[in-house]
Design a protein around this nucleic acid. Structure first.
Lengths: 246, 246
DNA sequence: CGACAAGTTGATGTTACTCAAAAGTGGTGG
DNA sequence: CCACCACTTTTGAGTAACATCAACTTGTCG
């Protein structure tokens, strides 16, 4: 655990308290999870027997990634799991797509306790994760490399921040540029060049595992709301007629 | 309703029966939904009051799209809802991203009945939809335009096929090339060129709203399973060392 | 038929990829 | 402590894929 990071129990309590009201039983369960921990070394996939034995795991420490590799070696990282995230393991073998969960660095997980308040929190966390998946689709489908990296960094900053990891505009990012490329649909080389241009544009720096946002207006790549109908099209400015809310 | 398509009650029963065992009550509820139907004209967004009043809707007829528009007018279609799909409406205003649901063509929906068996089916459908979202991420992040269009067509063929819409390799596709471009992160012009190359490659044709797959091996753009660890890398062939299951 | 949306094609521009190599980083053992 | 190794980051040069801009054609519906 890095200095400046709260212990994992505190991170879990902080995060789930923000999602739902926890009672004494919920908190007691969270404080009691360390002994059932599952360790996963960097690069290792979550073993099948673990996935079969549990439907839901909590991330206590380390980062994990949900990945999909095509048979020619191309890899897509669908998303990362950071400390205090909930890993849902309900996938079936007969799926339209099968993915894997692997540890990005040495990670510690545990079976998710099942008290009522915590179950509520898992539900809320699942809905949030779903929204992040939407955001990932928008990043990949309609953003430039520059925007993708910036938007992803903002997302991770916020996700780490809500468990007390990192200051408002500084956080530790324990992944390689290649992994970021596989997340954002870019090559590692292009990620590197994009980081350079983000640095030169005064947006952020990322050195020796620490990301610093330099702008004060580093809030969002999105903007104010507007409204339009699907398929509607202005005769003059087509783009302007399609706006929707952020 | 196009000729050759089963009525919507039959489509719903067919689809949900494949997801879970339905009893007489479930079937009766499905047969009784027509009178509560919600009509949505092509291009119209799902009204806020409908989203507030219901947590889940069933698509009886027509296609809908979940969209996200950036403030400069770029639009991403996150996914489509086709007849017999379940639209979950649990998003909150304070989300990391806000999306809209709009009708692609004249559509009919209804509030989802809540018998026990159907609730099971909705859960299974939600898990499936989640997997399709993963697939969308992989398409956008790591596939060429050619592969994206082909893979998406296969997905839609399968999704329509399981409710009896369309023959094994022929189905109606009631959208424009521009909408497909907004789905696959491409311009309408490039979608058009890609369709031409798919035609010339003997993969599929799409004329006057009908898609026909021409290959008999049109099963999947993915392939056999392999195994690797995140971050592992062969000294000789890096790509080959990263394979994972389909 | 006329009007408008959708599809098609060509020419050109830009973004990101590929291949290649050098320089930096961290760990490990002599 | 240093040498070595593997990995990662960085930069350059050339290329491929996709976007953009601008016509023109086809289809659809009144």
């Amino acid at each position: 655990m890095l200095p400046g990071h709260p212990p994992f129990q505190e991170r879990l309590i902080r995060r789930f308290s923000a999602l739902t009201a926890l009672d004494a039983v919920d908190v007691a369960q969270l404080k009691d999870i360390a002994q059932r921990s599952i360790r996963l070394n960097a690069g290792r996939e979550l073993p099948v027997q673990i996935q079969a034995a549990h439907s839901r795991l909590l991330v206590l420490d380390g980062w994990l990634a949900r990945t999909k590799c095509l048979r020619d070696g191309r890899r897509q990282i669908i998303g990362f799991y950071v400390p205090a995230d909930v890993v849902e393991l309900d996938s079936r073998p007969d799926f339209p797509i099968s993915t894997n969960v692997a540890a990005v660095n040495d990670a510690v997980l545990c079976p998710a306790p099942t008290s009522a308040g915590l179950m509520d929190a898992y539900g809320a966390a699942a809905v949030l994760d779903h929204a992040f998946l939407y955001r990932q689709v928008v990043r990949l489908g309609r953003m430039s490399a520059f925007e993708r990296v910036k938007d992803w960094m903002l997302e991770i900053r916020d996700r780490l921040g809500r468990t007390g990891m990192g200051e408002p505009n500084v956080f530790g990012l324990p992944i390689t540029q290649e992994l970021l490329g596989d997340t954002l649909g870019l090559t590692a080389v292009h990620v590197n060049r994009t980081l350079k241009s983000l640095r030169e544009a005064g947006v952020l720096t990322w050195r020796s595992g620490i990301v610093r946002f330099l702008e004060q207006d580093a809030l969002s790549t999105e903007g104010p709301a507007a409204a339009a109908r699907l398929g509607e099209r202005g005769t003059a400015d087509r783009a302007a007629s399609r706006l929707l809310s952020i």
